[in-house]
Amino acid sequence: MDLLKPRVLLVDDEAGLRELVQVYLENSGFEVIEAADGLKAEAELKNEAFDLVILDVMMPQLDGLTLCRMIRSSQVDLPILLLTAKGEEADRLLGFEYGADDYVVKPFSPRELTARAKALLRRSVKFQQTNEALLRYPNLLIDNARHWVEWFNQEIILTPKEFSLLILLAKKPLQVYSREQIMSLAWGEDYLAELRIVDVHVKNLREKFNSIAPFNYLQTVWGIGYKFEVPR
C-alpha cells in the first residue's frame, strides 16, 4: 500500500473495462483495488480504507445502488462515483438519493472518468481542510471544520454534497441561487449533471431535518432556485 496515493475501489463486472480504467487511474497517481461484483466490493470495504469508490450500477449478486446505500449508511464522507447506462436517468436520480456524489454515463472516456475522480477528491480534501467559523441560527448549528450539523441539539448526518449545498446557502441568508449556480459554487465548475439533481439533494436535506422538527430554512424560489431564510 502506498500511503501517498489516493486509494480507489473500482467495482464493475466487466473485466475489460476494469483493466482499462485501472491503467488510466494508476497512470494518474491512484492506487486501484478491483472488485468484480458488489459482494466482493462489500468485503473489501469492510477490511480496507479507501478514498473513493467507483461503482457500476448494474451488477450481479449485489447491485450498485444497493451497495451505494450501504456504503453511505456507514461512511458518510467517502466519495462515490456511479457508472450508469446511457439514458437511465431514474438510476442516476435514485443514486443521488442514496448518497452518490457524481456519475459517468457508459460508454465513457477514461480521461473523463479520471478527471471526475480527481475532482471528487479535490472537493473532499478541500472540504476536510476547511476551517471556518461556526454558523449559528435558531436551533441550528453548522460546524464547517468538523462537518457537523445540529438541529434541535440532535446531529444530522449529511453527505459531502448535501453539506456543501447547505453551507453555500447558509452563508448568505436571503441570497437566491439558481440550480446552475448551486452546481457550480457548491460542487465545482466541473460538475455536470441534470439540474434536477439539485432538487433531489434539497429534498434529501429537508427530509433529514424534518425527521427531527419542521425545517423551514430552505426556501424554494419558484422559477429560479433556492435560498436560505431564517424564519421569523
Rank of each mutant, 00 (worst) to 15 (best):
Q22P: 07
V23Q: 13
Y24T: 10
L25C: 06
N27A: 11
N27M: 12
S28V: 02
S28L: 06
G29W: 01
E31I: 03
V32S: 03
I33W: 09
I33S: 09
E34M: 10
E34G: 06
A36L: 10
D37P: 08
D37G: 09
G38K: 08
L39M: 12
L39R: 15
K40T: 12
A41C: 08
A41I: 07
E42K: 13
E44F: 12
E44Y: 13
L45C: 08
L45Q: 04
K46T: 09
K46Y: 09
K46A: 15
K46D: 12
N47V: 11
E48S: 14
E48M: 12
E48Q: 12
D51K: 00
D51C: 00
L52E: 02
L52F: 03
L52S: 01
L52K: 02
I54Q: 02
I54K: 01
L55T: 02
M58C: 11
M58E: 13
M59N: 04
M59T: 06
P60V: 07
P60D: 02
Q61P: 01
D63M: 06
G64H: 03
G64C: 05
T66C: 06
C68I: 05
C68G: 07
R69K: 14
R69D: 11
Q75S: 14
D77V: 09
D77R: 13
L78S: 05
I80E: 05
L83W: 08
A85I: 11
A85P: 08
E89N: 15
A90E: 15
A90W: 08
D91I: 08
L93H: 11
L94D: 14
Y98M: 13
G99M: 04
A100D: 01
A100I: 04
D101L: 04
Y103M: 07
V104D: 02
V104H: 02
V105F: 07
V105K: 05
F108T: 00
F108M: 02
F108H: 01
P110M: 04
L113Q: 00
T114I: 01
T114N: 02
A115E: 06
A119W: 00
L120R: 05
L121T: 05
R122E: 13
R122G: 10
R123W: 07
S124L: 09
V125R: 14
V125S: 12
V125T: 13
K126D: 14
Q128L: 11
Q128C: 06
Q129E: 15
N131I: 01
E132H: 10
E132Q: 13
R136E: 15
Y137S: 07
N139P: 03
L141H: 06
L141T: 10
D143N: 15
N144V: 15
N144D: 12
N144R: 14
H147P: 00
H147L: 10
V149R: 06
V149S: 07
V149E: 08
E150D: 04
E150C: 01
E150V: 00
N153F: 00
Q154I: 00
Q154A: 01
E155T: 10
I156S: 03
I157Q: 15
L158P: 04
T159V: 03
P160N: 10
P160T: 10
